[in-house]
Amino acid sequence: MNIFRLLGDISHLLAIIILLRKIWMSRSCAGISGKSQLLFGLVYTTRYLDLITSYISLYNSVMKVVFLAASYATIYLMYVKFKATYDHNHDTFRIEFLVVPAVALALLINHDFQVVEILWTFSIYLESVAILPQLFMVSKTGEAESITSHYLFALGVYRGLYLLNWIYRFWAEDHYDLIAIVAGVVQTVLYCDFFYLYITKVLRGKKLQLPA
């Protein structure tokens, strides 16, 4: 474990908690993409299967349970409890265009053609694009509540910190995983224009308004 990965995990946890709390407190999921949340649920489910089989550390197991539980809770709140507030009209990204290529790529490019490894690889590829429906929705609505932008910022920073973690691990432990790194770079790059807007607008107290 290193400080970059720890801060990354904390940022990731913070993002998930911010979102869950926002939906629960406002009893509404307006402005949130349910499709992205479904994709994140799929990412954690396919990646954390080893929760049952392999034990790495208490921290690792606890965080996996928390991520899975929070992800499913968010999906439940969005599609069941506060279903009436779900914004179907703006959450229109075709997620099959993300899932199918991720499956194909996981079958083509992986470290080992085993079920668990393929599922892990699929989850890595899918996670790198899972935020697209949310970013697409923000661009369609033209704005995002500040709490939603804090969620997106924390979520974007988490994988950016993981990039630093991988640099550190390459330097300190002399190993690296190119699949995770390439997908992590793609994932972080997707947030760049949002980071720009967040830093130039939201941090100055303005609402996140995308140029129409």
Binding site: N60, F67, Y176
Partner: peptide
């Protein structure tokens, strides 16, 4: 082949 280090990351 790049060693896919043991999945100790979240």
């Amino acid at each position: 082949i790049l060693n896919s280090f043991q999945k100790d990351e979240l």
